[in-house]
Design a protein around this nucleic acid. Structure first.
Length: 817
RNA sequence: GCCCGGGUGGUGAAAUUGGUAGACACAAGGGACUUAAAAUCCCUCGGAGGCAACUCCAUGCGGGUUCAAGUCCCGCCCCGGGCACCA
């Protein structure tokens, strides 16, 4: 055994042991309660970045800790392999996306293995494997048959030069990133999944999900955006048509002075057909992206049409405007506008000289000035005929009833959530298993013909998907009439693959549709770890998809992820890792220089998991120094002998103090690893313990045993973070069997007992002294001792005591005047 | 613009339920060892004042609640994440 810490030797020795003993192979018959520990699988972008290192180390620490606690742990890994970057690489370098992806996976797998993650690699798969996406196609057809899949037009970013659809990310300042052409909004037929059918369940279930952070649940609630309101029908004058709008404020209906529709709305198109000004405005609205953030920050603009609608209660004619802030995707693509009581409508009305009418007055003595701003609070109705004097709440019901009586409105629960558009006009994705037949329309691919395999031998010519011109892929006979037909060339949104991979990990080789019984052994995932950037979309789609699988009878549980750990971002030059270029964040050179344990420890020390931080190498020196120290301490102690059986009753004060530190560390680290999921303080706690141990000079056999216990504790507690070094050191402190097979160290409560407790003494809230008090002292005694302390007495001198506060085992505050 | 976070020494951070602000580290400075360097070990280390004992100031900014506020409340500023086709 080498007295100098040499990470490469240590790390390959430990990894060899785990491989030879299949230490991380998880089975349903394993001992202990099952614990499915999962980190969000990576996109195989090329090489790991420090964000990956952080995420997978955190998950590994959670997994290894639960192993110590006796759970049957399953930690899988796979690859979210479809996506845009592979296509970009193909376009740029001519490498087929499949080849590029496969090479990246091989490299990144090697890096993960080098980091020593306790992964069961026998479960590995990539989402671009036909054996995987086969079942995604299969479920899609099941959902189509159930009516949960439909086709409708949706807006995309169109690059008129490259003749292609762009992702929002590929639009920079309104222009295509490659062509530089001004991007246009264009409508296209797309496939949708009816997530809105599950909106209520997705919302309500959040209340039961105690293992999720409140912030994430809050984001999801707001995203789903349930609101109670009224749907109101406005008859369109001169047309046999009704304009339906949704409002959460029917109490303001009498204050509506116009209605506004989206540029894509049929009424806008009708108006544009006969009015050049409207047509021009609709045209400018198309020179925009599909991103909501752009729309929301855009200067509000609109144009009046010659059309009018009839107010359902007053019969008055209201003008129809086309406005750029109305979203066709949300609600009915039309809104009623009440400038007196909605700030956006107020600003729009001011800009275009539309009347502002007050119909709500503040309650009580408060005042409002509609010349200054809209009054948006609830209040009391005015200028509203029979509804005058009602509160907003009462008027909500009154007006809703009045509309219902005229069949001009109905109460509805509305959601901000929109159905999930899953079509992508891209090559590197899962083919949508549909066939277009000119006789039969859209026909699903029959189950026995699945999977529709994506051809991987492709050449990119320009930027368009090779599928659109590949006759061998396109040509197919219609499954219904047998006539020549064409395959759908769109592929699925890659969120489809990442919505169920965790279920597939339970049974990666299942041949029955999608998953088999093993899924109900492992699911739900006990602890899911990933970046905060996934707080809404991925996690909501995955929850939805799991419910779709449940309703198909494939899984039993309602929710896929019990506990959720959301990581802050690792930043590089102020940018998130996955976005920043260059190799400054490449962990490879750090692994070569410091070894896996140091990189892992440094990463865990750097910040608590939920927090974002800027990665720097500063932590590495401290982590390496600490591991070296632990290494040499164990060696020195082993040479001097481990001592006999520990007899706590016979220990002197110093040794008892060391032993207390040992057991405090067990308690603290257990709480940090298990309940708090905060690992930076685990490293600190073990550092404090090793600092205490290094100051301790054992005088006899019993004291040597105290040292042995301390070192064994340090090794076990830090082992989830630095598993290699601790594996190799374990036998040197008398450990029998491999460390990976050990249990969490046992806490001896009696070792924590303190005879004397230190109190802080404050006078008027300021610290004026410290006192030592016997642990069993009464409050009166504590107070007397506090008042007698030198500096405390000085600050109390000549003043009257107003109040005395004693916080047991902590603090005394004496308030004087 | 909307939703969700965050802001503490030169740096990363700790302070768990309102109870000692700065644990544990990094960097820096000083010292020991060494022919020298590296490594290692020891000491100092928020700011100001003071020989010292101590005192005052200090957790983005401004108010408030409380015996006591980094922690709770109100109003701002700045930074990050998400906004439905990046993953």
């Amino acid at each position: 055994m080498n007295a100098v810490y040499h990470p490469p030797t240590v790390e390959s020795q430990a990894q060899e042991y785990w491989n030879d003993h299949e230490s991380f192979r998880a089975t349903e018959s394993g001992e202990g309660e099952k614990f499915y520990c999962l980190a969000m699988f990576p996109y195989p972008s090329g090489r790991l970045h420090m964000g990956h290192v952080r995420c997978y180390t955190l998950a590994d620490v959670i997994g290894r800790y639960h192993r110590l606690k006796g759970y049957n742990v399953m930690q899988p890994m796979g690859w979210d392999a479809f996506g845009l970057p592979a296509e970009n690489a193909a376009i740029k370098n001519g490498i087929p996306p499949a080849t590029w992806t496969k090479d990246n996976i091989a490299y990144m797998r090697g890096q993960m293995q080098r980091l020593g993650f306790g992964i069961d690699w026998s479960r590995e798969f990539a989402t671009c494997d036909p054996e995987y996406y086969h079942w995604e196609q299969w479920l899609f057809i099941k959902l189509y048959e159930k009516g949960l899949v439909y086709r409708k037009n949706a807006v995309v970013n169109w690059d008129p030069v490259d003749q292609t659809v762009l992702a929002n990310e590929q639009v920079v300042d309104g222009r295509g990133w490659r062509s530089g052409a001004v991007v246009e909004r264009r409508e296209m037929a797309q496939w949708f999944l009816k997530i809105t059918d599950y909106a209520e369940e997705l919302l309500n279930e959040l209340d039961k999900m105690t293992g999720w952070p409140e912030s994430v649940k809050s984001m999801q609630r707001n995203w789903i955006g349930q609101s109670q309101g009224v749907e109101i029908d406005f008859a369109v004058n001169g047309r046999d048509d009704v304009l339906t709008v949704f409002t959460t404020r029917p109490d303001t209906l009498l204050g509506a002075t116009y209605v506004a529709v989206a540029a894509e709305h049929p009424l806008a198109e009708a108006a544009a057909a006969v009015d050049a000004e409207v047509a021009a405005f609709v045209e400018t609205c198309k020179q925009a992206t599909t991103a909501e953030a752009d729309l929301a920050t855009m200067e509000k603009a609109g144009v009046a049409t010659a059309l009018t609608v009839k107010h359902p209660l007053t019969g008055a004619d209201l003008p129809v405007w086309v406005a750029n802030f109305v979203l066709m995707e949300y609600g009915s693509g039309a809104v009623m506008s009440v400038p007196g009581h909605d700030q956006r409508d107020w600003e729009f009305a001011r800009k275009y000289d539309i009347p502002v009418v007050q119909v709500i007055a503040p309650e009580g003595d408060d005042d409002c000035d509609l010349e200054e701003a809209a009054f948006t609070e609830p209040g009391v109705l005015v200028n509203s005929g029979e509804f005058d004097g009602l509160t907003s709440a009462a008027a909500f019901d009154g007006i809703a009833d009045a509309l219902a009586a005229k069949s001009a409105g109905r109460r509805v629960t509305n959601y901000r959530l929109r159905d999930w558009g899953v079509s992508r006009q891209r090559y590197w994705g899962c083919p949508i298993p549909m066939i277009h037949c000119e006789h039969c329309g859209v026909v699903p691919v029959p189950e026995q013909d699945l999977p529709v395999v994506l051809p991987t031998e492709v050449q990119f010519e320009g930027v368009r998907s090779p599928l659109t011109t590949m006759e061998s892929f396109l040509q197919v006979d219609c499954p219904e009439c047998g006539a020549p037909a064409r395959r759908e060339t769109d592929t699925f949104d890659t969120f489809m693959e990442s919505s169920w991979y965790y279920a597939r990990f339970a049974c990666p080789d299942a041949n029955e549709p999608m998953v088999d019984d093993r899924v109900n052994f492992w699911a739900p995932v006990n602890h899911y770890v990933g970046g905060i950037e996934h707080a809404i979309l991925h996690l909501l789609y995955a929850r939805f998809y799991f419910k779709l699988m449940r309703d198909e009878g494939l899984v039993d549980a309602d929710e896929p992820f019990t506990d959720l750990l959301m990581l802050g971002m690792v930043l590089q030059d102020g940018k998130k890792m996955s976005k920043s270029a260059g190799d400054a964040g490449d962990p490879q050179k750090l692994l070569d220089k410091y070894g896996a344990d140091t990189v892992r420890t440094a990463m865990m020390m750097a910040a608590p998991p939920h927090q974002s931080f800027e990665w720097g190498e500063a932590q590495l020196e401290g982590a390496l120094r600490f591991l070296k120290r632990l290494w040499s301490m164990v060696h020195e102690h082993a040479v001097g002998g481990l001592g006999g059986a520990l007899n706590p009753a016979a220990l002197g004060e110093t040794a008892a103090e060391v032993r207390r530190k040992t057991h405090e560390t067990i308690a603290r680290a257990d709480d940090d690893l298990g309940r708090r999921v905060q690992f930076n303080t685990v490293v600190s706690a073990v550092m404090e313990l090793t600092n205490a141990l290094s100051r301790f000079d054992p005088a006899d056999d019993n004291e040597r045993a105290v040292m042995t216990e301390g070192l064994r504790t340090a090794l076990l507690v830090i082992s989830p973070i630095a598993p290699h070094l601790t594996h190799v050191l374990w036998p040197m402190v008398g450990g029998e069997g491999a460390l990976i097979e050990q249990g969490w160290p046992e806490l001896d409560e009696s070792a924590l007992a303190q005879a004397v407790i230190e109190y802080v003494v404050q006078v008027n809230g300021k610290v004026r002294g410290k006192i030592e008090v016997p642990a069993d002292a009464e409050q009166g005694v504590v107070l007397d001792l506090a008042k007698a302390a030198d500096n405390v007495a000085r600050h109390m001198d000549g003043k009257a005591v107003v109040k005395e506060i004693v916080v047991p085992n902590k603090l005394v505050n004496i308030v004087v005047r």
